[in-house]
Design a protein around this nucleic acid. Sequence first.
DNA 1: ATTAGAGGTGAACAAACGAGCACTATATAT
DNA 2: ATATATAGTGCTCGTTTGTTCACCTCTAAT
Lengths: 210, 210
Amino acid sequence: MKKELTDRQKSIYEFIENFVQIHGYPPTLREIGKEFEIASTFGVKRHIDALVKKGYLIVEGSASRAISLVDPAEKAEEENLNVYSIPLVGRVAAGFPILAEQNIEGKLAIDHNLFSVKPDAFALKVRGDSMINAGIVEGDVVIVSPQTNARNGEIIVAMLADEATLKRFIVKGGDYYLMPENDNYPLISVKNREDFTIIGVVKGVYRFYN
Amino acid sequence: MKKELTDRQKSIYEFIENFVQIHGYPPTLREIGKEFEIASTFGVKRHIDALVKKGYLIVEGSASRAISLVDPAEKAEEENLNVYSIPLVGRVAAGFPILAEQNIEGKLAIDHNLFSVKPDAFALKVRGDSMINAGIVEGDVVIVSPQTNARNGEIIVAMLADEATLKRFIVKGGDYYLMPENDNYPLISVKNREDFTIIGVVKGVYRFYN
DNA sequence: ATTAGAGGTGAACAAACGAGCACTATATAT
DNA sequence: ATATATAGTGCTCGTTTGTTCACCTCTAAT
């Protein structure tokens, strides 16, 4: 739980929350001051500072109206659902960053109590049957935590020769391999390959039946 | 539908939308200008004016950052995560109703935009390897829509001799069978078995890697 | 009696901001 | 040829905004 707020601070926090809801942008110090009959902007500022220190607000720089609520994620928490909305990547077009707009197909709510991922995770539709022995089949959706390194044995999403691929990452004797979980596909050595990059580690799998 | 936007206007609208999403407050004219390499604030302002005239934005007075999107509610709905919280059933104790408190192990948030299930769905941890050919392995979690009937070919959760089991439901020549997706297990005829009940149909599968 | 914390005043200031103007460029349609 | 709409530049202007200063008040704990 967050630190305790004084009554005054709580009132001010609620006002800001409300103001953003109504207007679509945060109030200025003077607008807050007017509401609470605080003549000096400094009086207001110290409340804002306190709210920032206690973790309720974020103020970016000293720009105008640059107050933002920490809240929205937390709202869901109070309702007991720890949910991120992550992008669902359909196909991966070579040459584009994986999260480029061209690639995004939709959104997906995931419960990060279960999938231990950060909000920068994304979901990826699986094509092909190279991971069938690991129980990942065509049409499945994998939850990927973006990172450029991986541990031995983890299932990863990697770029190999301008194509996104899903394989198990194997470290053996100082060499790196991509191992398909399918007896029909060969082990691939990626040692010294310039066109190989790790994009992320698979943290979970979804499948839908319709 | 709203009036048509030019490409440029659309880009700028999307940028504002995105900015608000990320920061919690709208951008200034100069921030927009920097993004699109428009040196003069006036150039930006006219785009904003156009967007206001066409009904996409509201600008209140001439205050700083007083831009707000017209349709936050609409957008919120689109982006809204339609999430149910459903119970996660660990083991199924024979003799108890499946949703008895003894069986519940936790909660799970599911996006019912993707899993087309009602709020009465529940999740079940998979034991054993009887569905391995269908890509469902030990430890997976299946999303089950409770119902007492099933169509040919659907994967179902059923009670058979006081044990919960996960099998494919097959209708063939007026008879009913439970088919394990594992070559090592036999097809089971459930025709005329009094100790057989369909509990629900599997609508999805989750898997977590840790 | 004194210290510490929360809350507030009033003024002064620099930076950031929106508004406005005259002018240019480039299409497209008349 | 000539409007018309879109898009942009470079500049000025006045206002808004956040920051900071020294100083005041009240309450609660030491």
